[in-house]
Design a protein around this nucleic acid. Structure first.
Lengths: 338, 338
DNA sequence: CCTATATATGCTCAAAATGAGCATTAAGGA
DNA sequence: TCCTTAATGCTCATTTTGAGCATATATAGG
């Protein structure tokens, strides 16, 4: 028989609603951050108050609007985190007893452009500032080889050797599956466990090691974890739902679309094959207009989303034809890199 | 600036942990249900008590163990539901004020076999008893054409014609994308909105219409919604992660594997192509043993999971080569049906 | 106007993955 | 031995990918 809820819980639970609002600007993926009094970064968030809000989504929209004066379009629930000890700094904000728990419900929101915000209270940050190892657009991130993998190697041999080795290999693509971009959360969690990020030290009441200074910017509470969840979810979902268009303006070139996908997934695509798959998908319609490149070159045709196709076809999302070697399809930076 | 949590929330929030424990037996997908005092069905669940449980998962395992004497293996979080008005019957269980909200965190758990349980308190039910329209293994479910689609048609023309038509078409595969098995939740939610399931009437304090009697068994609270979420998630995930093996015993024939997949996705697969994809995936290893069919026929080889591949390759899951027309690959029933 | 440079776009070709279905093999039963 | 029932093996035509060459159309500088 299900236990009833009539016994009042000995300790109370507060629910925090957290938003990862993402947009791509200048070929870089941005996330909206708010600053706390002491200048630390976090996601827009606030408590869920059932008396005020009929649903989580309504509450979330309210908070984001209040804190960043931005109204949300597409949103999707990510995950609910309830483990003890990962919400340390939030504890200070609560009025309740020490054993009160804050449960974080994370949401992903997408916007076609980075809305203007008051820089005092909020700002858009490139999400790779928080996860430098996730950006492979210009080749394997140096910090991986140089710092992270060696540190994880040490952690691996410290205990549970084989189990840890398997986890690291899977998350960081050392096995034959290679780097799987959507495992962003696995990677962050592993680094947290191994004590390679500031939050890990903080939650244990310790100071970060020299390495943690290099492993990206930290966030308050468990917000970086939520951001990692968002990145992984978005990367995975691109492959089977056409949500990339939530990040595009009404008119765009195919290269802009490609750069947006690249910004999200963190690696370069094969240009011609990408266009082929986009064309075949029917998700996009050519318009009469065209756009000229600042750097010269043939003007690109402007496209718009095919709303019909989006609705009708429950379409499959775009193919993500990964680049192997470098070639003309490489990005601007990649080309110069060689 | 993020609003602080220091103001006590005007109304309290309770968190319910709910488990969808699934197993496949006799080629039918089963879910573990518990009976409330009045005999109504529900999922194993209980309140999350932060003082007792460090994580949701620990709490969940405790509840399931207490209520059904089953210990969980593989588990995964599904979704957190917090909307008002969907947890009606649970309100009676709570001791708090009328405006207290119960937030449901749903989990999916998989087991290789349906554990023996005390029939007094719990039991395994075929999940298609709750969702008869989701089982296409023997062709399109009669209830769809006969009852559901006509009723949805009425609902569609009642208001917001075009928007509703689009939603119905998408969810029920009337557009060119066809039936997408993983949209189980969309379908249930649509039926709830249209008042075609008992829960919808119940939450509005009404009696169900004659139709709701035919649209599957109902569950307490929002449990049928959680089950729909689980079905959709599992169906989707099969395609990109090899979790199907969480439902298999240590040794199995390829046909058994196929029948298990079919039980989950709700339609028949092309036998030869299914085996080809399984063989190529390397997820499975042939053993020396073999199993004879009760009905006669060549004995099938017995396989076991290739644990190495599961770990190493972060493998892609199995291909789901859908059957179009009937042929020798059809199921036992399908064959007889013609 | 002509040339070098920078992109956008078209197209080709081979390899791999899919979708269908025929043919053969190995048991049990009449 | 012949028939029925499955398990397995294989073939063939399409599609879908992965790579990369070839053209077309701008801009910038002589």
């Amino acid at each position: 028989m299900p236990q009833s809820f009539s016994k009042p819980a000995p300790a109370s639970v507060a629910i925090a609603l957290n938003a990862v609002l993402a947009a791509v600007e200048n070929e870089s993926p941005k996330v909206l951050c708010v600053k706390s009094e002491d200048g630390r970064l976090g996601l827009p968030y606030g408590p869920f108050n059932p008396a005020l809000h009929r649903t989580f989504e309504i509450g979330l929209r309210d908070w984001v609007e209040q804190q960043a004066h931005v109204s949300l379009g597409y949103i999707e629930q990510l995950y609910t985190f309830g483990d003890k000890g990962r919400e340390a700094p939030a504890a200070a904000l609560k009025g309740g007893a020490a054993d009160d728990r804050v449960v974080s419900v994370g949401y992903l929101a997408l916007a076609p452009e980075a809305a203007r915000v008051n820089a005092e209270e909020a700002g858009w940050r490139d999400w790779y500032e928080f996860f430098p190892w996730e950006d492979w657009r210009n080749g394997p991130p140096a910090i991986l080889e140089d710092e992270i993998l060696p540190a994880l190697g040490k952690w691996t041999s410290a205990r549970d050797e084989s189990a840890r080795r398997a986890r690291v290999g899977l998350a960081f693509g050392l096995e034959d599956a290679g780097w799987e971009e959507e495992r962003a959360l696995d990677r962050y969690e592993l680094m947290y466990e191994a004590g390679l990020v500031v939050e890990a030290a903080r939650d244990r009441g310790a100071r970060g090691s020299p390495l943690t200074a290099k492993t990206g910017e930290s966030m308050i509470s468990d917000h970086r974890r939520i951001l990692a969840t968002a990145i992984g979810r978005l990367r995975g979902k691109l492959k089977y739902r056409p949500i990339i268009f939530e990040l595009m303006p009404p008119l765009f070139t195919l290269l802009a679309l490609q750069r947006t996908v690249e910004a999200i997934v963190g690696f370069r695509l094969h240009k011609q094959n990408f266009r082929r798959s986009v064309a075949q998908s029917g998700l996009v319609v050519r318009t009469k207009g065209s756009a000229v490149q600042e750097t010269g070159g043939r003007p690109a045709a402007l496209f718009r989303v095919n709303r019909e196709a989006l609705k009708d076809r429950a379409a499959k999302g775009l193919a993500i034809p990964r680049m192997k070697r470098a070639s003309d399809s490489g990005g601007p930076a990649a080309a110069k890199q060689g």
